Amino acid sequence: MAQYPMTAHGAELLRNELNELKTVTRPRIIESIAEAREHGDLKENAEYHAAREQQSFCEGRIQDIEGKLSNAQIIDVTKMENTGKVIFGTTVTIMNLETDKETRYRIVGDDEADIKNNLISVNSPIARGLIGKEVDDVVNIETPSGTVEFEITEVEYI
């Protein structure tokens, strides 16, 4: 089975979500189902059907998280020597050579990606263009608006 790269922080977030689902959400849903059952006829009981749907979603998410964690390859760059090379988990500052605008990204696993917080998936075009490069390298990255030239100004293992 394939291994999925994940940062230590991302794995911790998934573990916390899993714990929340198992200890808070699941018991609450079971209680809702029991309450709805007491109302009688289950065929026309909207509360019962809504609670069963929630239960199905919750159990599916629990299985999903457990599967991801069991196949996770957790990479903690803070324990690695900073060679200046862009690898999974590093925080990279790049400068658009056309606009001189600097942007800082952290390269993370697919589940952790959140562009609003500058967390980009290792499988994104930007990350794929940066992986293996070093500080002062100039890279051409395909964007929806065409090819953009960036210079890597900083690589942090944080």
Rank of each mutant, 00 (worst) to 15 (best):
E17S: 07
S32L: 15
R104D: 11
T99S: 09
H49T: 07
D114S: 07
G67L: 04
L18Q: 02
E156Y: 05
M80Q: 11
D100V: 08
I65E: 06
G132C: 03
K116D: 11
A72D: 02
T23D: 07
Q3P: 09
T78F: 03
E151N: 09
E149L: 12
K101C: 08
I141M: 08
V86G: 01
F150P: 07
F150A: 04
A51I: 03
N16L: 12
N16Q: 15
D137M: 05
L130I: 00
E44A: 14
N140H: 15
A34F: 13
P5Y: 00
I65G: 05
V24C: 06
H9N: 12
E20I: 14
A8L: 07
E112Q: 05
R28M: 10
V138S: 11
S145M: 11
N96H: 07
E17F: 01
K68D: 08
T83A: 02
G109V: 00
S56G: 09
K133M: 07
F150D: 06
I152H: 06
I74E: 03
E142K: 12
L42D: 14
N71T: 14
V148G: 08
N71W: 05
D76A: 01
L13K: 11
I87G: 02
R15C: 05
G84Y: 03
A50I: 09
D76Q: 02
T7C: 02
E81P: 08
V138L: 04
E102C: 04
I29F: 04
E44I: 12
L130A: 02
V135Q: 10
Y48D: 08
V24T: 08
R15F: 03
V139A: 04
T143N: 05
H49V: 11
I94R: 05
E81I: 13
G40Y: 04
I141N: 07
E12N: 13
T78G: 03
N19A: 10
T25Y: 13
I94P: 08
I62E: 05
Q63D: 13
V155K: 03
I75A: 00
N140M: 13
K133E: 07
H49L: 09
S56E: 14
I74T: 07
H39L: 13
I141F: 12
S70Y: 05
R52L: 13
N96F: 06
G132M: 05
I115L: 13
T153C: 07
L97H: 03
V77I: 12
R26K: 14
M95A: 12
E151R: 15
A36I: 03
S32D: 10
I107Q: 01
E66F: 01
D136M: 06
T147F: 14
D136A: 07
A2F: 10
V122F: 04
A113V: 00
I65V: 01
E35M: 13
A127Q: 00
L42S: 15
Q63N: 13
